[in-house]
Computed example of a mutant assay.
Amino acid sequence: MSIPLLPETFAQIPRYKILYSNPSPIHPLASISPPRVSPHHPLITIHAKREDHSSPLACAGNKYRKLEYIVPDILSQTPLYHSHENNPTPPGPLQGAATTLVTEGAIQSNHTVQVVALARKLGLQALILLHRGTGGGLAAASNKEAFQRSGNVQINHLLGADVRVCEYGDPLARDATPLLDELREAGQNPYWIPGGASLHPLGGLGYARAAFEIAAQEEELGLGGSRRFDYIFVACGSGSTVGGLVAGFKLLEKIKGLDVSKTNGETRKLVGILNSPTKPREYHEKRVLAFARRAGELIGLDGERDIRVEDVRLDDRFVGTAYGVLDGESKQALETMARTEGMVLDPVYTTKVARGMMHWVNKGEVAGSDKPLEQVNVLFIHTGGQAALGAYADVI
Rank of each mutant, 00 (worst) to 15 (best):
4 P>V: 07
10 F>H: 00
15 R>T: 08
19 L>D: 10
28 P>M: 13
28 P>E: 12
33 S>T: 10
35 P>S: 15
39 P>I: 12
43 L>T: 15
47 H>A: 07
56 P>N: 11
63 K>G: 04
70 I>P: 04
72 P>A: 07
76 S>E: 09
89 T>F: 14
97 A>L: 02
101 L>M: 11
103 T>Q: 08
103 T>A: 13
104 E>S: 15
105 G>A: 07
107 I>D: 01
119 A>E: 01
122 L>S: 02
124 L>S: 03
134 T>K: 11
138 L>R: 13
161 A>I: 08
178 P>L: 09
185 E>V: 14
186 A>F: 06
192 W>Y: 15
196 G>W: 01
199 L>S: 13
201 P>M: 12
205 L>Y: 03
215 A>F: 02
220 E>W: 07
224 G>L: 11
227 R>W: 12
233 F>E: 04
237 G>E: 03
239 G>E: 05
239 G>H: 08
244 G>H: 05
248 G>E: 00
250 K>P: 00
258 L>Q: 06
262 K>T: 10
263 T>G: 08
267 T>S: 01
268 R>K: 06
270 L>A: 07
271 V>E: 06
274 L>F: 05
288 V>P: 04
290 A>Q: 11
296 G>L: 00
299 I>W: 00
303 G>K: 02
305 R>E: 12
306 D>V: 01
309 V>F: 12
318 F>W: 12
327 D>F: 09
330 S>N: 13
331 K>G: 15
333 A>Q: 06
336 T>A: 06
338 A>S: 14
345 L>V: 10
346 D>C: 12
348 V>I: 15
359 H>L: 02
362 N>D: 09
365 E>D: 11
368 G>W: 10
379 L>N: 08
380 F>M: 04
